[in-house]
Nucleic acid binder design. Structure first.
Lengths: 146, 146
DNA sequence: CCTTCATATATGCAATTGCATCTATATTGA
DNA sequence: TCAATATAGATGCAATTGCATATATGAAGG
């Protein structure tokens, strides 16, 4: 008779756990980054998308879709990356409104350097707390939310 | 011979999934909040901790521990809540450095009003995507990260 | 007591975010 | 061709965050 709109307690616990686990892990990883003198974690995602991409370059709106960054935030993040010489904006010929964002050599190097710290952090804060099957199960459940 | 410092791919997928699922769900929920003309989600957590607490009041450092907010952020969040009349700072007699943060009637009302939107959002963005046992399993796995 | 150190909270300032809007093109359809 | 509309990206400004440090008080030791 009644519509389902109230979450069950399991649902609420999943949501609270999701928030807390993410915040806690993120804070721990960012702390490791700072201790290593690295730039913020967000830089990694952009650089990694670029490195993964075909020609080492993407349009801003493509990065946006892959990273969930807001358009205006991405625009300024690219500014900062460019100022540090990690990416370069290049003309996009087929459409004068657009541009390419290209990873520079320095950007690729930084991405690789960041991964050394990042991978250790992920193992330390996530891997070490879960068995292999648990990690797989967690990834599978989280993918249902995407 | 080699130490474990690289995460397995399952671990990395769990981490990426954790970030993405949280961001996506959080953005969706905040959007619902804005659509309902409600203040930011962060306000809820503080108000809820206060309402749950014994006398409807807590010391700032207790809120800090329960919410994972940084001390300086909490201090100013309390300012904003106070400015809206949702909480009140009161003297803490045993230690003149400290204070109580007390939920006002308006604060309790706001908390309850926020929960109406919040609970619907949680159900919509989390509950609807998971079966009951899946939600339980997810909550259990996430709790291992805490 | 008085000095030294620890704890609770606040705050100045720079960096980042969110919001709204702008500019510059492209696309569409009359 | 041209007005209307849509898309790509940038930007001014206010709000929030992070960092470092300040203020005020308490606790401990000599």
């Amino acid at each position: 008779m009644s519509e389902r709109s109230a979450p069950t307690s399991a649902t609420t616990e999943a949501w609270v756990g999701l928030m807390r686990a993410q915040q806690r892990a993120l804070a721990a990883i960012e702390k490791d980054f700072k201790a290593a003198g690295l730039p913020p974690l967000g830089w990694y995602d952009v650089l990694w998308e670029l490195v993964k991409a075909e020609a080492g370059r993407l349009r801003p709106f493509e990065i946006e879709a892959r990273t969930l960054l807001a358009q205006y935030n991405l625009s300024r993040l690219i500014d900062r990356l460019e100022k540090e010489g990690l990416v370069r904006r290049e003309a996009y010929d087929e459409d004068a409104r657009g541009c390419w964002v290209v990873a520079t050599e320095a950007g690729r190097g930084m991405r690789a350097r960041m991964w050394e710290t990042y991978s250790r952090s992920i193992e330390k804060h996530i891997g070490a707390r879960l068995s292999e099957p648990e990690a797989r199960e967690l990834a599978a459940l989280l993918s249902r939310l995407l």
